[in-house]
């Protein structure tokens, strides 16, 4: 009996997604359950030049090529570090475990960092996980909503007595990061075609953000990270400043704090000053 539309589609998808050869895919248990292998030549007509395996093989080949192309575009650092052959193996394993479930290829790599962290046998696993996570972050910030930017006029309009309890609202395309490897510098070198820096572990802090539709990052000192992290988490300005002035191993002066703040505002990291409701 001929398969109906639903069975035909389930069968074709099972064959396309199967990681083995064309013949192994057609003979796989999942495919055979839907369409017995004996029916295959009747289901897929041969052409003048191609047999049934060749014809379904075109779709199988294009599937992996298309997904790999999409991931290469989103993870150029991973591709550079691994080389094309190892990157292809990574992609094959990844899409086998996490086939796309979105209407857009932009979301295809969402679980790639998790896959790298949870898969045994990946060399430099910690570094690659952080590099993948950083590249995914860049993609997300690239697509984040555009925000207005805090203006000098808006800052001047804040009554001096209100700054203590004011909260600074960050732009949507911003993330404050603790990093264990120099993944930002590595990615920048890859994009610019320069020699990549070493990939040894080196704890550091950074803010990644988008300005005028271009992605950027700034390295931060540890106290600067603590202050900015507090501010973007919604801690009132007075509390955030106090915690940095009092806590931590590195002493910070008020001049330094003012300099950081001015720099972040100039870079457009905030979109508004939110004042406490007097009621």
């Amino acid at each position: 009996m001929a398969p109906d539309l639903g069975n035909t589609q389930q069968w074709m998808q099972a064959v396309i997604l199967h990681p083995g050869s064309d013949r192994e895919a057609v003979a796989s248990p999942k495919a055979r359950k839907l369409v017995p292998a004996s029916q295959f030549p009747r289901l897929i007509r041969p052409s003048r030049t191609l047999d049934s395996f060749d014809r379904i093989g075109i779709y199988r080949g294009m599937y992996l090529a298309r997904l790999q192309e999409a991931l290469e575009a989103d993870f150029p650092g991973l591709l550079h570090f691994l080389g094309r052959k190892r990157f292809s193996e990574l992609v094959r394993g990844y899409v086998d475990r996490y086939p796309s479930r979105s209407y857009t290829l932009n979301r295809l790599g969402d679980r790639l960092p998790d896959y790298i962290r949870s898969s045994p046998g990946i060399v430099r696993q910690d570094f690659l996980h952080e590099l993948a996570r950083f590249e995914l972050l860049m993609s997300r910030l690239f697509d984040a909503e555009e925000s207005p930017v805090l203006t000098p006029e808006a800052i001047a309009a804040v009554p001096p007595e209100s700054w203590e309890t004011a909260r600074l609202k960050p732009i949507a395309a911003l993330s404050v990061e603790v990093l264990r490897y120099p993944v930002g510098a590595y990615l920048e070198a890859v994009r610019q075609g320069k020699t990549c820096p070493g990939t040894r572990r080196k704890n550091h802090w950074a803010v990644v953000y988008r300005r005028q539709y271009a992605l950027r990052w700034l390295d931060l000192s540890r106290p600067a990270y603590r202050l900015l992290h507090a501010l973007v988490s919604g801690v009132p300005l007075g509390d955030a400043l106090s915690s940095v002035l009092k806590g931590g191993r590195q002493p910070v002066g008020e001049v330094q704090l003012f300099s950081w703040f001015r720099g972040w505002v100039t870079e457009g990291l905030f979109q508004a000053v939110e004042l406490e409701d007097p009621a």
Binding site: D4, L5, G6, T8, Q9, Q10, M12, Q13, I16, L17, Y59, M62, Y63, R66, L67, A70, P99, S100, R101, S102, Y103, L105
Partner: peptide, 25 residues
């Protein structure tokens, strides 16, 4: 065309079987 089933997107323009059933559907 169709691009996938069971929630999966193959991201390809996959051919339809040209049957009465698929036409009605």
């Amino acid at each position: 065309c169709w691009t996938g089933v069971s929630g999966i997107n193959v991201h390809d323009l996959l051919p339809m079987p040209y049957t009465d059933e698929s036409l009605r559907y």
